[in-house]
Amino acid sequence: MSKMHVSASVNGEPVEFLCEPQQSLLNVLRDELNLTGTKEGCTTGDCGACSVMLDDRLVCSCLTLAAEVQGKSVGTIEGVANGDTLHPIQQALLEHAALQCGVCTPGYVVAIKALLEKNPLPSESEIRYWLAGNLCRCTGYDKIITAVQDVAQQMAKADKNAGEPA
């Protein structure tokens, strides 16, 4: 049984790796590429801790074959902050104390970013349904939802300001 050679982009950088045909993307990210920010909570697509972007889609990396990402772009938690600046979503989660143990947090950051890219000002209900696949057992979700509402407002305002003539 020979390994497959896969070329893809991970967080904007070209990456090549070898994988087994049945190996998951999660497994490759964590064990081959040492990107351990993406967490494993269930391996059956039920918890969202392994959320990543595959091209423009939010997916569970545990239910994606590594071989499938040939020629595609993968976005992980490690690519969210910009240099030494946290993404506003990360900052909002911190300021709202929206994490306790923090193990689900990377998945949330990726999922929230995907949400706000599609729907910049989601309602509370839209946020809750979008994030229903990201389990959190610590917070009761309350502060996460508040953080998303808050950061959505901030980002919308920042966009508006950026769009206005100086």
Binding site: G48, C60, L63, Y129, G133, N134
Partner: peptide
């Protein structure tokens, strides 16, 4: 069907 993540695949 499933979560947002599942619906992406």
């Amino acid at each position: 069907i499933g979560s947002t993540q599942i619906q992406g695949k």
